[in-house]
Design a binder for these strands. Structure first.
Length: 188
DNA sequence: CGGCAGATACGCT
DNA sequence: GCGTATCTGCCGT
């Protein structure tokens, strides 16, 4: 991925990714989604998988920025992160919600018929909708079938910064970011 | 619509 | 064993 942006710390990259696009090719179809909610996870953060060091599971988080870190949780769900920071640094940005711009019918089909905001308003929901699982772990996001298309930064007054969801440690750290008023942002 | 229990497998203690 | 960066269905209001 073109250099410096994703080499920055997660707390910087997370708000910066709002408004950027995920372009997914699946079954001959093109799906385009806009990132509307993110969370930052860093190596010095007790809530982060990388906090305990580099392991087979977290290896991708410690690699170079611009790759995909996919983890499996609660026995049935996948969640996707965009790895950031320099090689050797365990940091990533969790994608918590996206807004479909193209291919919404494919997303709904992958979600068992759930459409509208219910298809992609949560980290595991959007992975199911985009058919992202363990096989995509480590994928380079400059390449098909899943690309990250960076867009210009959003205006600061369109971004809400608050605490993260679903964690038990470091609950007070305000590393969740979302686009103000966007209906696809996950519920709290 | 809000709250809660259950599902279910894997990494780490 | 235990806890988990979650979601769904079922219940009551």
């Amino acid at each position: 991925m073109a250099g410096t942006l994703l080499d920055r710390p997660a707390a910087e990259v997370a708000p910066r990714l709002l408004g950027s696009l995920l372009v997914r090719e699946l079954g001959g179809r093109k799906i385009i989604c806009r990132i509307v909610e993110t969370e930052a996870y860093s190596q010095t953060d007790a809530a982060s998988h990388s906090y305990r060091g580099r392991t087979p599971r977290t290896d991708v988080m410690f690699g170079p920025g611009g790759h995909l870190y996919v983890y499996f949780t609660y026995g049935m769900h996948y969640c996707m992160n965009i790895v950031c920071g320099l090689e050797g640094v365990g940091a990533a940005v969790l994608i918590r919600a996206v807004e479909p711009l193209e291919g919404e019918d494919v997303l709904a089909a992958n979600r068992g018929g759930k459409h509208g905001t219910e298809a992609t308003n949560g980290p595991a929901k959007l992975c199911q909708a985009l058919a992202i699982d363990k096989a995509m772990n480590g994928h380079n996001l400059t390449q098909t079938p899943l690309r990250l298309e960076l867009k210009p930064p959003l205006q600061a007054d369109k971004i809400v910064q608050t605490t993260r969801i679903g964690i038990t440690r470091a609950r007070d750290v305000p590393w969740r970011f979302y686009i103000h008023g966007n209906p696809y942002v996950s519920k709290h």
